[in-house]
Structures are given as structure tokens and as C-alpha cells.
């Protein structure tokens, strides 16, 4: 462990948070060589992976949704599978199927693309609800049952799903209950002009995959480190107030679920860890708030502004 000096001049040796934060920064930098001008989204996506949650990227085609997912998988050294969802996609196309092997005179299981550490589910809203729920169940259970046999999915297991919010014809929008299973939803948006100029100038290397900077085991350790980031009572109080506000009558269709509360805390921990801190502060929660809550809450009053902005405005911190 190389000696480091933290921002507060007091090292936190039990976690080695500064080491982790530096490694994570390296992964972000590497990813940023493939997705230009989206440093904050890369950071959120990484936080989602560190929090052991699934990510939904919602945006129009061509803004780099898949590129981001691929780059993260490469940089983290994870096995990668991509499923293009279509209306005729069947659950077995995702999970796998047993095929009769004539040579061995027995059925052998052909594992589907779900058996990868990082699965990109492209345009998830194009598939039928049946196929969607096969994926979403696998996401929640982290195991699949095929032909009566339960098979564990690899560790770590993360799904990055993308969907195009403007594409309505022939699609099946994910119901709210399924949206809750994604820890975060982010939008990418168009790149800033400087980034787009670099993109157009051909600065992006599309041929060679990114060199892995970590591996699955390493990611597992980081995820454990995220879980041990401290959350003091003052921060828990703030979290509780936010959750309570979301459940007040007349503001949102439905308040945040306990699962959403846990997701918020875990995401904030992952954010704090990337900031080389072994404790959460309200700014961490505020940073992940839009990505964690906006897809779970629908405003009732038809008012302007996002749910997260409203919540943040209403609850004070000290």
C-alpha cells in the first residue's frame, strides 16, 4: 500500500479508501477515453456498479449508451454479454436452453448471454413483458431456474439496460414495479461541443478494447468496502426525511420503497468512496439523488421539475 496523503491530512487506514479512490479514478479516466465529456455520468455508472446495483440508461439512440457499458466492462475486467432485445426475443434466448447432444446421447445446457458478469440489455422495452420479466427476475434473484434446475449467476452480476424513451410504437414500457429494480437510471444526453469536436476528429480508439484495470474479485472487494462506508445518524436522519417527504400525501403517486431507501444509501456510500471518504455526507446523497429516485417517483401535481429537485429543495441539511 503506497503512502498517501488524504485531503484531510488524516489517513483512514482500515479501509484504504484513498487507494481505492485512486484505482476508481483510473477506471473513470480509462472509460472517459471512450465516452467523451460525460465524466459525471461515468462516475454515477461506476457508483451503481460499486453499489452492486443494476443500471438503466435511458436516451435516444447513438449517444453512447452501449459504448459506456462496454468500456466499463472492459476497464473493470468483467465478462461481457450483449443482448439486443426485439419483440420476438424469447426468455430462452436470454437464459439458455438444453440441447440434445447426439454424440454423448444426453442433454447439455447451452448457457444464455445472461451468464456474464456484465450484461448489456439493449432496448429492453422492445421485448415482450414475458421476456422482460425473465431478465428482471434474474436481476433480482441473481440466479435462474431453467428446466427445473437452479443455476447461480456469476459474481459480480450487473445488468446495464438501455431504452429509448421516445420510441413508443411496438414497445412495452417497463412498469413502475420493474423500474424499482434498477438502482439507478441515468440519461446520457448529447456530448458538449468540445467533446463532440474530439469525437468527430476521430480521437476515439474503437479498435482495441480497454486494458482491464481490475477484475471481478477486485470489484467484489470494492463492493465490500462500499458497504462499510460509515453513515452517521445526522446523515441517516437526512435520508429518512427525504424518504418521508416522498411518502407525503398529494406529492407523488407513490412514495419511495424501502428498497429505494437502501439503494439511496448504498449509492451515496459508493459516491463517497470515489471521493476517498469512509463516511457519507449529505452532498453524496444529493449527488446520487436524481439518478436513484427520479425513475421511481411520479409527480402528482403535474408541476415542473424533477422529483429529486423537489425533494432536495424541501429537506434542509445541517
Amino acid at each position: 500500500m503506497p503512502p498517501t496523503v488524504s485531503a484531510d491530512a488524516t489517513p483512514a487506514p482500515e479501509l484504504g479508501v484513498t487507494d481505492i479512490a485512486e484505482s476508481l479514478a483510473a477506471i473513470r479516466t480509462a472509460t472517459a477515453t471512450r465516452v467523451f465529456g460525460k465524466d459525471d455520468r461515468i462516475r454515477l455508472a461506476l457508483a451503481c456498479l460499486l453499489a452492486d446495483g443494476h443500471l438503466l440508461i435511458e436516451d435516444v439512440p447513438g449517444v453512447g449508451k452501449t459504448t459506456l457499458a462496454h468500456a466499463l466492462a472492459d476497464a473493470l475486467g468483467l465478462s461481457f454479454a450483449r443482448i439486443q432485445f426485439t419483440s420476438d426475443l424469447m426468455p430462452s434466448d436470454i437464459l439458455g436452453v438444453s440441447v440434445y447432444d447426439r454424440g454423448q446421447a444426453a442433454f447439455t445446457f447451452n448457457a444464455g448471454p445472461i451468464f456474464a458478469q456484465l450484461v448489456v440489455a439493449d432496448e429492453i422495452n422492445r421485448a415482450s413483458p414475458r421476456t422482460q420479466s425473465a431478465l428482471l427476475e434474474a436481476m433480482a434473484e441473481r440466479q435462474v431456474t431453467i428446466e427445473g434446475r437452479t443455476r447461480a449467476l456469476p459474481q459480480p452480476f450487473t445488468v446495464i439496460a438501455t431504452q429509448n424513451p421516445l420510441d413508443h410504437s411496438g414497445t412495452f414500457a417497463l412498469p413502475d414495479s420493474q423500474l424499482d429494480r434498477f438502482l439507478m437510471r441515468i440519461e446520457l444526453g448529447y456530448p458538449p461541443q468540445t467533446a463532440e469536436r474530439r469525437l468527430l476528429a476521430g480521437e476515439r480508439d474503437t479498435n482495441t478494447p480497454l486494458a482491464p484495470l481490475a477484475d471481478a474479485e477486485q470489484l467484489g472487494r470494492w463492493q465490500a468496502a462500499v458497504r462499510s462506508v460509515h453513515t452517521r445518524d445526522a446523515v441517516l436522519d437526512y435520508l429518512l426525511e427525504l424518504i418521508a417527504f416522498s411518502r407525503r400525501r398529494g406529492i407523488f403517486e407513490q412514495g419511495l420503497s424501502p428498497r429505494a431507501g437502501l439503494a439511496l444509501r448504498r449509492a451515496a456510500q459508493a459516491w463517497a468512496l470515489q471521493d476517498a471518504r469512509d463516511y457519507v455526507m449529505p452532498e453524496d446523497i444529493q449527488a446520487v439523488l436524481p439518478a436513484v429516485v427520479d425513475h421511481r417517483l411520479t409527480r402528482r401535481d403535474a408541476g415542473e421539475g424533477r422529483a429529486s429537485a423537489l425533494m432536495r429543495e424541501q429537506i434542509g441539511v445541517i
Partner: peptide, 8 residues
Amino acid sequence: LRYAPAHA
């Protein structure tokens, strides 16, 4: 002082 673990 406010958010870091008290023992730190």
C-alpha cells in the same frame, strides 16, 4: 466532525 465516524 459531523459525518465522519465519531471515533475518528
